[in-house]
Design a protein around this nucleic acid. Structure first.
Lengths: 346, 346
DNA sequence: ATTAGCACTCCTCTTTGTTGAGTGCTAATA
DNA sequence: TATTAGCACTCAACAAAGAGGAGTGCTAAT
């Protein structure tokens, strides 16, 4: 059987209507509210075909039809009309420049959740591919060395190192110069033990004292590269009955709280081949187990060279895809602009 | 009417039973499972009295009794027997010393939630009363100065300052010495504009260049003093039917997500006059609106001089108070020990 | 003062019936 | 041949009615 134009129109009508109402859609509704001018009986026959083809299904014998996952997939692939979205509150938010990445991203998550009424997730860009701009060791007090590393994008990493051997100011100065000359311009990912060894060697006479510190530095640089994820609007799932029964809700809430469970979303999004940077997962397509009954839309955003993160929106399968995609698109643009402005300024 | 010993025993039996089962408790149950050796009829009379006195109430005419808020209050004030609690997984957790306060507190929250099966909250100690141990300005690149401040407890604050005028190395060194000599040993709260002005003056010839930087430093020191709160086990509220209907659940989940809504808990806990540092809020007593149907138990913990934070447990009114208080007590001790060991080590 | 006995209440669960939206099929129609 | 009117049928959703049972309050006996 073929999906001719009329079937397509009917399918679209069913989905549109279901997205709006959340109720199964009957043949009479379609008959009345489309410009096809067909009787409900004809629609019924067509709908029967559509069901056979797997695009829609009946919750029970005498109910209307609802879209199947395949139906939604067809919709987002070919029927969807992206809506231009003004993202409320975003403009003001971005105007007052956030110097803390964390604050900015938390706010983005919040704004997304409020604008869409779905749950939102934002991952911070991974920084281990960013180049080291500045590195410095300082003595805070006896036995304690503070290591500060600034990478591109002005992301700052700190670590307090406990050392058994005291370092004098001169040694520290020397070390700082060594570290900066060797590591500057490299990304954290590129820094390896070989380099550290080379630096140790160059330190010359102080090898034994320096060795301990350098090991600690190496460790400090490498660790702490867990993916930061911010969420907002988790309680929005209660707006959608199909998600808010106890078990599902509990599992979802747990997922939002245990943010590592969301890393697979980020991974997929960043790996995705989509040129738009936007991906849609319907039901079982999602990489996150607890979201089998949801749809997830992710977008990759960029805050400058290599600083890529992910924004995700999690809602019911019958989410307003047009609106969601529009919102994400707007955000991508705004965040991109934000970086450009920063670039000029700094 | 007076609350004699027999009434007290019956009240205790009702509450104990209700805490266990969550079902209204009938007279026959009490008659059978206590050592009072009284018939159900007698118990009925007594229960009728207890209801009149406001300690218990009937959900409907032909049901058993459940404790009222007043009943719970009496229970926690006079009848409760704190249970010694082994806090599972805590030992191992604390053994591997956490150098990041954040990681430690997140873990504490998680362990509390898992041990009690209620929702948990942990506030980070406020650091603005901590003394400055170390302060340093460094030039990261043209126009960008990195300010690092370490306060007691090894809490590190960073801020990138954008400046229009270039500072040479000599000026920077001078500034660092000035800042350290003037601000070292003071708490962030004690640092005020007057001091900054004094430092500016001392800078001598460089006043105009230095001025801008100092203003930025002053700002950096002051800001960023919002209360960090970590939560865990929010989805545990679904274990308790009385909390998990849509509206209540949604509001609670929202409270856990918008962590500022929890600050009043921290405030009350820290201000509390309790010598044990443990406070119990039953129902309406809670300072957080959305928890009117919950009970909240908070404990103040201390990680050394002035580093006070709050641990909170949020559950249904029929929570196992004995267990919860026991758990919190254990934690207070463990965290205190943790600090002492650190103190020795550092 | 305590308790057995009893009528009474009211929640809970099950059964039964009613309604109505929506279907699939058949036969008539354009 | 495609469309449609008509009709019997299905089934969730709701309401009404009844049975069961846990628990109460009161009264009278111990």
């Amino acid at each position: 059987m073929e999906l001719d134009e009329r079937k397509t129109k009917i399918l679209q009508a069913v989905i549109r209507n279901y997205l709006e109402t959340g109720e199964p859609v009957g043949s009479r509704t379609i008959s009345k509210y489309t410009d096809l001018n067909l009787s409900s009986a004809t629609i019924r026959n067509e709908m029967s075909d559509l069901e056979e083809m797997g695009y829609i299904l009946q919750p029970h014998t005498s109910a209307g039809r609802i879209p199947s996952d395949k139906g939604y997939r067809f919709y987002v692939d070919t029927l969807m009309e992206e809506k231009e979205r003004e993202v409320v509150e975003l403009k003001e938010m971005l105007l007052e420049r956030q110097d803390k990445m964390e604050t900015l991203l938390k706010q983005v998550a919040k704004v997304v959740a409020q604008n869409t009424q779905y749950a939102a997730m934002v991952s911070a860009p991974l920084t281990h591919r960013n180049k080291v701009k500045f590195i410095q060791l300082s003595r805070v007090e006896a036995g304690q060395i503070l290591a500060v590393i600034v990478v591109e994008g002005n992301v700052i990493k700190n670590k307090i190192l406990s050392v058994t051997q005291e370092l004098n100011d001169e040694t520290l100065l020397k070390l700082n110069i060594l570290l900066n000359t060797h590591l500057n311009g490299l990304s954290i990912a590129e820094i390896n033990l070989g380099m550290i060894a080379a630096i140790k060697k160059q330190a010359g006479i102080h090898v034994d004292i320096v060795s301990e510190v350098m090991d600690a530095v190496a460790e400090a640089i490498k660790e702490d590269e867990d993916l930061e994820i911010y969420t907002s609007g988790a309680n929005n799932i209660f707006r959608y009955p199909e998600l808010s029964d106890h078990d599902k809700a509990s599992e979802l809430i747990n997922t939002f709280e245990e943010k590592q469970l969301l890393t697979s979303l980020v991974q997929n999004s960043l790996d995705g081949e989509e040129d738009t940077g936007i991906q849609i997962y319907i039901g079982d397509e999602t990489p996150v187990q607890s979201m089998k009954d949801c749809s997830v839309v992710t977008a990759t955003y960029e805050l400058g060279e290599g600083m890529k993160g992910t924004i995700g929106i999690i809602g019911p399968k019958r989410m307003d895809y047009d609106k969601v995609v529009g919102t994400l698109r707007t955000l991508q643009t705004k965040l991109d602009e934000l970086y450009r402005d920063d670039g000029k300024k700094e």
